[in-house]
Amino acid sequence: MGGALVFWVGLLICGVCVGAMFTFKSRSDPTLWRTCTILSLTCCYLMWAITYLAQLHPIIVPKRDDLRIDL
């Protein structure tokens, strides 16, 4: 599971957003529902992708302090 997972989940989210375009046609205010759904999905995806990629390739490598050197 590497960076390709971000790409595949992004495609899944795009598919759900396209599906939302056709789902909310019968509501009282379809533009509001579509906008809220697509914006929520996009923000959740971006937050997840940034967090996932930051953990996948950290900028600062953690160092362990509990290692002992036996002399």
Results as ranks from 00 to 15, higher is better:
residue 23 T to N: 04
residue 41 L to C: 14
residue 11 L to A: 10
residue 25 K to G: 00
residue 32 L to H: 03
residue 19 G to N: 09
residue 9 V to D: 01
residue 32 L to K: 01
residue 15 G to F: 05
residue 23 T to I: 10
residue 34 R to F: 02
residue 20 A to E: 05
residue 21 M to S: 09
residue 31 T to Y: 07
residue 15 G to R: 09
residue 27 R to G: 00
residue 56 L to W: 12
residue 42 T to G: 13
residue 16 V to S: 05
residue 18 V to H: 04
residue 24 F to K: 01
residue 44 C to R: 08
residue 57 H to I: 13
residue 41 L to D: 10
residue 47 M to D: 06
residue 37 T to V: 13
residue 37 T to H: 03
residue 46 L to I: 13
residue 38 I to K: 03
residue 24 F to L: 02
residue 58 P to V: 02
residue 9 V to I: 15
residue 9 V to G: 01
residue 29 D to E: 11
residue 42 T to E: 06
residue 10 G to C: 10
residue 27 R to I: 06
residue 49 A to H: 03
residue 36 C to L: 15
residue 45 Y to T: 10
residue 23 T to Q: 09
residue 26 S to I: 03
residue 52 Y to G: 04
residue 38 I to A: 12
residue 56 L to A: 14
residue 41 L to E: 08
residue 39 L to H: 01
residue 17 C to Q: 15
residue 31 T to K: 07
residue 11 L to K: 11
residue 18 V to C: 10
residue 45 Y to N: 08
residue 33 W to L: 07
residue 27 R to M: 05
residue 33 W to K: 02
residue 28 S to L: 06
residue 18 V to R: 13
residue 46 L to G: 04
residue 27 R to D: 11
residue 17 C to F: 00
residue 19 G to D: 05
residue 12 L to F: 15
residue 53 L to T: 14
residue 23 T to E: 11
residue 48 W to D: 10
residue 39 L to V: 14
residue 41 L to R: 01
residue 40 S to Y: 09
residue 40 S to C: 13
residue 47 M to Q: 07
residue 49 A to W: 04
residue 55 Q to L: 12
residue 17 C to A: 14
residue 59 I to K: 04
residue 10 G to A: 15
residue 21 M to F: 09
residue 21 M to Y: 06
residue 8 W to Q: 10
residue 30 P to N: 03
residue 20 A to T: 04
residue 13 I to Q: 02
residue 42 T to P: 03
residue 13 I to N: 04
residue 20 A to P: 02
residue 56 L to E: 12
residue 38 I to G: 01
residue 49 A to K: 01
residue 20 A to C: 15
residue 33 W to C: 08
residue 57 H to D: 09
residue 52 Y to V: 07
residue 47 M to K: 06
residue 21 M to L: 13
residue 53 L to C: 10
residue 42 T to W: 12
residue 22 F to K: 08
residue 39 L to Y: 08
residue 49 A to R: 00
residue 50 I to F: 11
residue 54 A to T: 10
residue 24 F to H: 03
residue 26 S to F: 04
residue 43 C to S: 14
residue 33 W to A: 09
residue 58 P to Q: 01
residue 55 Q to I: 06
residue 37 T to Q: 00
residue 19 G to E: 06
residue 10 G to N: 13
residue 46 L to E: 12
residue 36 C to E: 12
residue 18 V to M: 12
residue 39 L to S: 14
residue 39 L to R: 01
residue 22 F to I: 06
residue 44 C to M: 14
residue 58 P to D: 05
residue 52 Y to W: 13
residue 34 R to E: 07
residue 19 G to S: 08
residue 16 V to P: 02
residue 43 C to M: 14
residue 31 T to D: 09
residue 8 W to H: 10
residue 9 V to R: 01
residue 20 A to V: 11
residue 57 H to E: 11
residue 19 G to R: 04
residue 57 H to R: 11
residue 25 K to V: 11
residue 33 W to M: 08
residue 28 S to T: 06
residue 17 C to P: 00
residue 49 A to L: 06
